[in-house]
Amino acid sequence: MSITYLEAIREAQAHALRDDPRVFIYGQDVGAFGGAFKATKNLQKEFPGRVLDSPISEDAMIGLAVGTAIEGMRPIIEMQFADFSTVAFNQIVNQASTLFWRTNVPCPITVRLPFGGTSGSGPFHSQCLEAIYAHYPGLVVLTPATVEDAYSMLLSAVAIDDPVIFCEHKFLYYHLKAEKLPSEALPIGKARIAREGRDLTIVTYSAMVHEALAAADELATEGWQVEVVDLRSIKPLDTDTVVASVARTGRLLCVGEAWPWGGVTAEVIARVTAEGYGLLDAPPQRLNAKDTPVPYHPNLWAAHRPTARSVAAAARKLIRY
């Protein structure tokens, strides 16, 4: 018996629907069809009237979610792909994220963004948008890297009284498996040491955690002990855990699948440099996707995003600095 990352997301939604009558799901094809990725498979049958198909109107989907939140509901909105959430950008960053601050009325909506690259998906079904949402005040941005976190953090997301951008990585959907669902979890906002080491800290999140772990395995055969920090949550960002890790290793490599400009990796380096400058034995480095749209062909795609190989190469260079 094992459960995939995708099944964990379905189970978390079933759990939330079962536990809380205020929860409902709204999105394109989420009803009888069960969603483009089957993240809501059978949920409409199991929870009649609470798993509802929307027209292809991302802006109106989030607007509606905000209205229901005002009425005390806790909607889960499925964006078919994170890329399409840009159509809802205005409602997310201007309506949902400002409501509490302006009016003192909380806006507990969860926006599920199936995100990140998979081979052959191309420029408009591969994007990583966590940084642009994290830029806006009033949003919580979560990026689970494991099956356990996918489950527990989605449950937390629904329970949070603020809009949560839940970034679930499509690359992890099917092949990432766990034996069982967790009964407890780290609190939201706490990073996790995914692997301990003393020579270098790699700070990363979501699918890149697995690339970083593979790189750490490779470097271990060369005698280097690499520490991997899985941020779990982009906003809030657990600076303390990151700085504590850098204090142990003296070297920082930030890895993100998103584009480089003004992103999460830049933010982490800014914080470590400002708060832990004296802890650094080498200039902090980062590795991101290339600054182009995400390419379609697997040869180009594999070179566009960081991989275990490119992470290992960057780590080696930094260790030898």
Binding site: R50, G63, G67, G72
Partner: peptide, 20 residues
């Protein structure tokens, strides 16, 4: 909010929730 048309779907949402 200042973005025109953006409040309509929020009204929809309030009506939607009340119907539920």
């Amino acid at each position: 909010i200042s973005h025109l048309g953006a409040m309509i779907s929020v009204v929809n949402g309030v009506l939607f929730a009340r119907r539920m």
